[in-house]
Amino acid sequence: MLTTKRNAIIGSAAIVLAGVLGGAASAQAAPAPVAAAGGTAPACIDRSDVTNNPDGGIAGYVYNNCGKTMRVKVVVHSWRDTSCQSIPNKQSRYFHTVGGRYDRTAVC
């Protein structure tokens, strides 16, 4: 009896895992999200102005060209991340830290 339950659990886990890993193909692909929560910001967020300061820290503007208000933060390596800021469409926000190096811009 215990072996049967164990095998059923293992089989169920394998089916779920296959679905998660893409083993079950669907006829129609789901639309890709703009960005996952906490993931890297989409390409419509221009962060090309954010640079590393020679003596440490980051500074620069992040511009929103996504067509809607976006909430973003700058993830900083070896320092605390910036706060999450709402940036209306076609506007920018200035981000800076006194330490660390630029890692990425993320949605929040």
Rank of each mutant, 00 (worst) to 15 (best):
A18L: 08
A18Y: 02
A18T: 03
G19V: 04
V20Y: 04
L21A: 04
G22T: 04
G22M: 04
G22K: 03
A24G: 03
A24M: 07
A24I: 14
A25N: 10
A27S: 14
Q28D: 02
Q28W: 02
A29Q: 13
A30Y: 00
A30E: 02
P31R: 06
P31I: 06
A32I: 13
A32T: 15
P33W: 05
V34H: 06
A35S: 14
A36D: 09
A37K: 10
A37E: 08
G38K: 10
G38I: 11
G39H: 08
T40P: 12
T40M: 08
A41T: 11
A41H: 12
A41R: 09
A41I: 14
A41C: 13
P42M: 10
P42A: 11
P42R: 09
A43F: 06
C44H: 07
D46G: 09
D46Y: 07
S48V: 10
S48Q: 15
V50T: 13
V50C: 11
T51Y: 10
N52S: 09
N52G: 08
N53G: 06
P54M: 06
D55F: 10
D55N: 15
D55Q: 13
I58W: 03
A59I: 04
A59C: 01
A59P: 01
G60F: 01
G60H: 02
Y61V: 09
V62C: 04
Y63A: 08
Y63Q: 08
N64F: 03
N65P: 06
N65I: 06
N65C: 11
G67Y: 07
G67A: 09
K68S: 15
T69H: 04
T69K: 06
M70T: 00
R71I: 00
V72M: 00
K73C: 00
K73P: 02
K73I: 02
K73Y: 05
V74H: 01
V75H: 06
V75D: 08
